[in-house]
């Protein structure tokens, strides 16, 4: 039993996901890009829990635990990269980090 209907939760998850996505696409500050990635993960979490409750299956909630693990690991490694990068490049501006250019 889920109130309100599952669709509301899915739309909420989608909204957070899209907002996170937009953050990744539009922001130039690497820290905020990482925060946006956290938003994406949160959107996914909402969807997971919503389905878990709607379907009476605890797997969805268990999966969020793993999602949290990934989020924590990602934050730790990502921030370490930021620290190393800022030491090396003196900038957190993603525009200036373009060594992938062929």
């Amino acid at each position: 039993m889920i109130i309100p209907a599952l669709e509301y939760y899915l739309v909420l998850g989608a909204a957070l996901f899209i907002i996170g996505l937009l953050g990744v696409l539009v922001r130039r500050n690497l820290l905020i890009v990482f925060m946006s990635i956290e938003l994406i993960l949160l959107g996914a979490n909402v969807t997971f829990v919503g389905f878990a409750v709607a379907l009476d299956n605890m797997l969805g909630q268990a999966f969020v635990i793993f999602s949290l693990t990934v989020a924590a690991a990602e934050a730790a490694v990502g921030l370490a990269i930021i620290v190393a990068l800022s030491r090396h490049r003196d900038t957190l501006n993603v525009d200036e980090i373009n060594t992938l250019k062929g």
């Binding site: 539009v26 890009v33 525009d95 980090i97 373009n98 992938l100 250019k101 062929g102």
Partner: peptide, 17 residues
Amino acid sequence: LRRMQTGRLENYAFSVV
């Protein structure tokens, strides 16, 4: 095609989206 290769991740991410 090389002009598309800006080397900026957000451009690539945008293509994915």
